[in-house]
Design a binder for these strands. Structure first.
Length: 654
RNA sequence: GCUGCUGUAGCUCAGCCGGUAGAGCGCGUCCUUGGUAAGGACGAGGUCAUGGGUUCAAGUCCCAUCAGCAGCUCCA
């Protein structure tokens, strides 16, 4: 006996096997037009799936208004797309076609390569299928029968999936749409007509099972929505997001460039971008000193032997620039990390427990040979500067030091107005033995780290068991770029490996007058200045807070008659330490204002006859527009105050 | 690294079925001297990514290389 409790409290009883669709008829005909799926307790089920024969469940029908059915509809859209592709390209082999954020994809093995020129034909075929509005039929079959079906259909990937991923299933399901039969768990919308607005977006290669050693398939990406209106809004959002792309803004605002003659993946910081970077560095440097760090400088190269000791060479040779071979036989490596250098500073003399924690910080530039297909603007590059530091401390000091590092990273992100980040705490996989260091030490460290993170109220904290590096657990700060790609920025990592006797054999003399092994913490709040700046450009869409803005205020003369006064104001502002410039062109005010707005200059000081007479400027904020007349001295104080407090755009003076 | 696409003026892009290159913005000069998102006129700017090939003829077709874009894989 199956009992379904409806949202209004009524309950329905069935003593036969039924599907969601059967319930529909019981409840009332108006649902037949709007119901897409149902919620059985917390489980999303479609209307074609057999419900359990026994038990008592809450049952709620879902319509297009329920967010969770959007994903379900996109999955159905993926089926329609696959069916369309199969109609157009007989012999197509199907792989997987799941919904993803904002859309869906399907992987195919096709007789020929698809290009965007094929999209209209595929979309047209999909439109025909939508018009047919055929139902999605669900078939449940024993696994060996399914195997037979997939062999008959000549679908080798489905066969492999049945033999492999679904090895332990007794029965599996297919969904049928006319001639199209696909091994699929579901759930689906009742019929093709529910797929109302869709668009193919891109085609790309994707390895079968995500394994680079296996066959490469063609992946069609697309999006689908319940209405044309939503589809259009989504496409508009995409176009809007592209405008804040740091590669676009970086060029337009003259922040950085990448020159193929210098080398791909190597950033050239233009003067304006360099101001931005310098401000970030100064900000962080002050914080480091405040927090008990000591600044060091180390060279960009090191002997190969150094990296043999650290274990980076030759194990990571693939991702390094090859060694520089000297005539004398010495070999040097462009440094892929700063830690070995900092370790040698630690080891430059014996250390006492009284010195710990010893915190060595450096904006250290490192070089890694990233695969060509990985390079992206400033976010994935081959040379970058980490705001790096290494903390050498006792095991007992780890929790406090870790807390201070997380605290500092959070402070940095907060200061810059990042609220939408994730913190991922990567822990060891207790089953694996790949980790260095005493399991008990790990246990204690992980417990302490977790406690620290929980107590700090970090946004979107998640633990990732098994994701820890072999040398220690870590906390990563992750943010998304303008097209939704996630990037790791800040990081705090414990390291039991490099201090160990197998590596550098670090020591300090304890109160017992005997040598002990310190623990190392690697940490970088920005991660790398390149990546951070790239993300920062997108975060502010180029409209930086005053303290970071390459140009903070621009004098705009109403006509050339006021150039002298304007230049006088400009030099007063510069003398006060502001990054001021002047636009003295023979253009109309409106035109100069427009240019400054587009160049994201936070403030304009418009000067004409009135201002000259009174020793004022007419202040205009990029965000708020005309603010009226302000005496020059007040203006200077006001701007310096905004800079000192690192006020964010839109924040009010406190 | 792999798959697909792209590379034309400083920028954004047009250039059909092969016949020696175009727009807007920007830049320069001149006119205009103005009040908060585009005043006007004239002008200068290109080895069509690079190297080969096909052709009477290549920006256009083919191959290779380099670079960029999207995705996959990778990221100490």
């Amino acid at each position: 006996m199956l009992e379904l409790i409806l949202p209004d409290g009524k309950s329905l009883r069935f003593d036969r096997r039924i599907r969601g669709r059967d319930v529909l008829e019981e409840i009332g005909p108006r649902w037949a037009k709007t119901a897409l799926a149902a919620k059985l307790d917390d489980r999303l089920v479609d209307l074609m799936t057999d419900l359990p024969e026994d038990g008592r469940f809450h049952f709620r029908l879902l319509t297009a208004r329920d967010g969770e059915v959007l994903e379900l509809m996109r999955h159905s859209a993926a089926h329609l797309m696959a069916r369309a592709v199969m109609r157009l390209f007989p012999g197509t082999k199907l792989a997987f076609g799941p919904p993803v954020e904002n859309g869906f994809y399907y992987d195919f093995l096709l007789p020929r390569s698809l290009t965007e020129e094929d999209f209209p034909a595929i979309e047209a075929e999909m439109a025909r299928l939508v018009d047919l509005d055929e139902p999605f039929e669900r078939l449940e079959v024993p696994r060996d029968k399914a195997l037979e079906i997939c062999r008959d259909l000549d679908q080798p990937f489905k066969v492999e999936h049945l033999q492999d991923g679904l090895r332990n299933e007794r029965t599996v399901s297919f969904y049928r749409q006319g001639e199209f039969l696909d091994l699929c768990e579901g759930p689906h919308v009742p019929s093709a007509g529910w797929v109302k607005a869709y668009k193919l977006l891109s085609v790309a290669g994707a390895y079968w099972r995500g394994d680079a050693s296996r066959q490469q398939l063609q992946r069609l990406y697309a999006t689908a929505w319940f209405s044309q209106d939503e589809l259009r809004q989504y496409l508009d959002r995409l176009a809007e997001a592209k405008k804040r792309d740091h590669r676009v803004l970086g060029k337009r605002l003259e922040l950085f460039t990448i020159d193929p003659t210098v080398g791909s993946g190597l950033i050239l910081w233009l003067p304006k971008g360099s101001i931005l970077r310098r401000e970030l560095e100064n900000f962080l440097y002050d914080e480091l000193i405040r927090r008990g760090y000591q600044a060091v400088y180390t060279p960009h190269i090191g002997r190969v032997e150094l990296y043999q000791t650290s274990g980076h060479y030759p194990y990571y040779a693939d991702s390094q620039f090859p060694p520089i071979q000297m005539a004398e036989g010495d070999r040097y490596l462009l440094k892929p990390m700063n830690c070995p250098h900092h370790i040698r500073i630690y080891q430059s003399r014996p250390r006492s427990y009284k010195e710990l924690p010893l915190r060595l910080a450096e904006f250290g530039t490192v070089y890694r040979f990233e695969q060509s297909g990985e390079l992206t603007g400033m976010t994935r590059v081959r040379g970058f500067t980490q705001d790096d530091a290494h903390i050498f401390c006792t095991e007992e000091q780890v929790p406090d030091e870790f807390r201070a590092c997380v605290e500092m990273t959070r402070f940095v992100l907060q200061t810059l107005g990042f609220h939408e980040y994730r913190v991922r705490l990567s822990l060891r996989d207790p089953q694996s033995d790949k980790y260095v260091g005493d399991p008990e030490v790990w246990q204690r460290a992980e417990a302490a780290l977790m406690e620290v993170c929980r107590s700090m109220d970090l946004p979107n904290l998640e633990t990732a068991p098994g994701e820890a590096a072999f040398y220690g657990p870590k906390a990563d700060f992750i943010v998304s770029d303008c097209i939704g790609r996630e990037w790791q920025l800040g990081t705090v990592q414990l390291d039991y490996n490099l201090p160990s006797p197998k590596r550098f054999n670090l020591e300090y003399i304890g109160p017992d007058n005997r040598p002990h092994q310190p623990v190392m913490i690697h940490r970088a709040p920005f991660g790398s200045l390149e990546r951070f700046t790239g993300i920062l450009i997108e975060h502010f869409a180029g409209a930086f807070p005053l303290w970071l803005a390459p140009e903070q205020i621009r004098i705009v003369t109403v006509s050339e008659k006021f150039e002298d006064y304007g230049r006088g104001v400009e030099s007063r502002l510069r003398a006060a330490g502001l990054r001021a410039s002047g636009d003295y062109r023979a253009e109309k005010v409106g035109s100069k204002v427009r240019d400054a707005q587009l160049e994201m200059v936070p403030y304009l000081a418009v000067v004409g006859g009135r201002e000259q007479e009174n020793g004022t400027v007419a202040l205009r904020s990029r965000q708020e527009g005309d603010l009226g007349a302000v005496p020059v001295e007040n203006l200077i104080q006001q701007l310096l105050d905004e800079i000192r407090s690192r006020r964010l755009p839109g924040e009010k003076a406190s």
